[in-house]
Amino acid sequence: MRPFRPYPLVLAAILAASSGAAEGLGDAEKGAALFEQCKGCHMVGDGARDRIGPHLNGIFGRRAGTQGGFAYSASMTRAGMDGLVWTAETLDAYIENPRALVSKTRMSYRGMKDAQDRADLLAYLRRHSDSPADIPEAEPTARPTDHDLDPAILALEGDAEYGEYLATECLTCHRADGSATGIPSITHWPAEDFVVAMHAYKSKLRPHPVMQMMAGRLSAEEIAALAAYFGNID
């Protein structure tokens, strides 16, 4: 049963990641069937090559954005430089909501919201990794079930005036004019992208020590305030 979920389940990924439950891989045969929806862009298995997206052989254990020869988005390259490595945990989070982990990724996929589906898909991809035996496969009972994100987090109305004050801390590194030289632009993002990214840093799912620290002490209300301010900064 797959109940309709109107919000990206970023917290589900966070909870799954922190409990280690995302390592519980699923049914590779079902995963092969699910991969049909990825095939428009990705290849995996013998003879796989880069297409619209990079081929996925050996994805487990690879640093993000480093498949030789593929032209990644700047965001994906940056995520790799920040330390993002593809594991069962990070892949699970990325497939669930790509933008939670890599804002402005070119992967135009809305996300696979069912945890069991993701586990099955990862079990299939794992077969095509360099050394499948090294990738842990947990007991089926340890598999994640769906975790509900409290929709209230995304529904929070940000206090833009408070956001303007909090934003002063961000502007020590990020440019108010939206330019990016070595540090990404954070202006005019859709509020939802901003919020899921910050919560992914807060939970330390998304790598980068400065951002994990800065997001770590922000409340959900404060993150909403920042999203409101930066989304409409003039």
Binding site: L171, C173, H174, T181, G182, I183
Partner: peptide, 14 residues
Amino acid sequence: YEESVGWYSGITAD
């Protein structure tokens, strides 16, 4: 290092 260069640009603008 590249981040520090970005930071310099950011903080001096700030």
